[in-house]
Nucleic acid binder design. Structure first.
Length: 416
DNA sequence: CCTCCACAGGAAGCGCAGGAGT
DNA sequence: ACTCCTGCGCTTCCTGTGGAGG
């Protein structure tokens, strides 16, 4: 058994592991100078006591949207003015109510509790802005996750009409390129007052970024040039996602550490790739609500045991695409609920779960064409079903027994 | 052709938790 | 302490929709 000091003194390939983390915002963002300057120009009016423009930033994941905006916000806050910013990720603050609540919580400490109505929160925010003639900029990251976005936009834009002093501006960030088309025209025109697109990084840009970070994160020459090129190529093939590329590098480093290597070559990057893909899925799955896990579990279990329509698909199948019919997955889900002692949800809500899972990229769905009865969706799990099944089983066995008992108690109460 | 099947997804509404107003 | 009120997760009911089968 090693001691902690032995573990800590073990040589590591990492010099500063932190710079490879997805949350790290470097002082210099390569290839984004132009975008940063533009955003600064649009935001600057707030420092001369005018309203900053609303900005809508979009581009695929890992193109530096969030990092660039946060970079500008950091610079902005360094100026001591009645100007302030409020950043939030709408994956968490995903409704008008929660967004307003977050704003009040950040700036009005005595309001830091739940239960106020929308109107109350709105009034308090207006009074706070107006009272200090403030220039508030709200950054809504992953803004497409907000359910009642139209209402949120209406509320926020209306605030400017109601304000005599100060103002409120919005910076929306989204990675859904077609997202603004589903917006109400009115909210679109206010949110998309100014637009900016972040193009994916090119392979050579990714290379440069990886080189910059690897020099900061690892010792000099710890990473093969060809390994960096490989990681850049893999990420470029995906979507030009810098976050993914950095994650590859981080994982490659961890693999090197495990084998006590002081050097990263192509092999470690290759291995990292396999790991990272399933890591990403495992992370998403672990944070999924119980019911959605059960649906996913049912789909994986069924794709292992085989669809009853297997013969049908075999004829028109493109390679291994094992599709399942929505109905049979629901039946399997019902069985899974029984097995894990959970209360099953109605089929209507089950369909909502399917949509959620698809949005997370855990499953893919297609409309049933000719060959199948009626109007059904065909489901395919996006990752190896055996792994998913095992992972969810583990999630349910570990630490969730109490929850199962609670559900059970609820069930008996119902019968009374 | 029509009818039925097996779903998709909108609308309404219900019960609950937790805070406001009194 | 009590009645409202609000948001949330969910169920119930309902109206499409497009191919299968007669």
């Amino acid at each position: 058994m090693p001691t902690f000091s032995q573990i800590l003194s073990k040589p590591s390939i990492f010099k500063d592991r932190n710079v490879l983390s997805p949350h790290y915002v470097p002082d210099i963002l390569p290839f984004r100078e132009e975008q940063i300057e533009k955003i600064m120009n649009w935001v600057a009016p707030a420092l001369k006591n005018e309203r900053a423009r609303n900005i809508f930033v979009y581009g695929k994941t890992g193109t530096g949207k969030t990092a660039s905006v946060r970079h500008v916000m950091k610079k902005f806050e360094e100026e001591k003015q009645p100007a302030c910013t409020c950043y939030m990720n709408c994956r968490i603050y995903n409704s008008r109510y929660r967004v307003l609540q977050k704003i009040t919580k950040d700036f009005i400490p005595e309001m830091d509790k739940a239960g106020f109505g929308v109107a109350t929160l709105y009034e308090k925010i207006l009074a706070w802005i107006s009272g200090g003639s403030r220039r508030l900029i709200i950054v809504l990251d992953e803004v497409d996750m907000v359910g009642d976005l139209d209402e949120l936009m209406y509320t926020l834009t209306r605030a400017n009409d109601d304000l005599k002093h100060g103002s409120l501006s919005i910076i929306g960030i989204s990675n859904k390129l077609d997202f603004k088309n589903v917006l109400d025209p009115r909210s679109r025109s206010s949110l998309c007052e100014t637009e900016m697109v972040f193009a994916p990084y090119t392979p050579s840009q990714l290379q440069a970024i990886l080189l910059q970070r690897s020099q900061m994160g690892f010792g000099q020459d710890a990473v093969d040039e060809s390994a960096i090129n490989l990681a850049a190529a893999i990420a470029a093939q995906e979507t030009g996602d810098a976050r993914y590329a950095l994650r590859l590098l981080l994982k490659a480093g961890e693999i090197a550490d495990e084998h006590s290597l002081m050097h990263i070559s192509d092999k470690e990057v290759e291995d990292a790739r396999k790991n990272v893909d399933s890591d990403i899925a495992a992370e998403i799955i672990a944070t999924l609500p119980d019911q959605q896990q059960l649906v996913l579990y049912a789909a994986s279990a069924l794709s292992l045991s085989g669809s009853k329509y297997a013969k049908l698909f075999a004829a028109s199948d493109d390679e291994d695409g094992r599709f399942l019919a929505s109905g049979e997955v629901y039946e399997e889900y019902t069985r899974a609920c029984k097995a894990f002692k959970r209360k099953k949800r109605s089929s209507r809500w089950y369909r909502e779960y399917l949509n959620d899972l698809e949005m997370l990229g855990l499953i893919t769905m297609v409309e049933s064409g000719p060959g199948m009865r009626g109007h059904t969706r065909l489901i395919k799990v996006g990752y190896p079903p055996l792994q998913i099944k095992a992972l969810i089983e583990k999630n349910f066995v570990h630490g969730k027994v109490m929850a199962a008992e609670d559900e059970d108690a609820g069930g008996t109460q119902e019968k009374l």
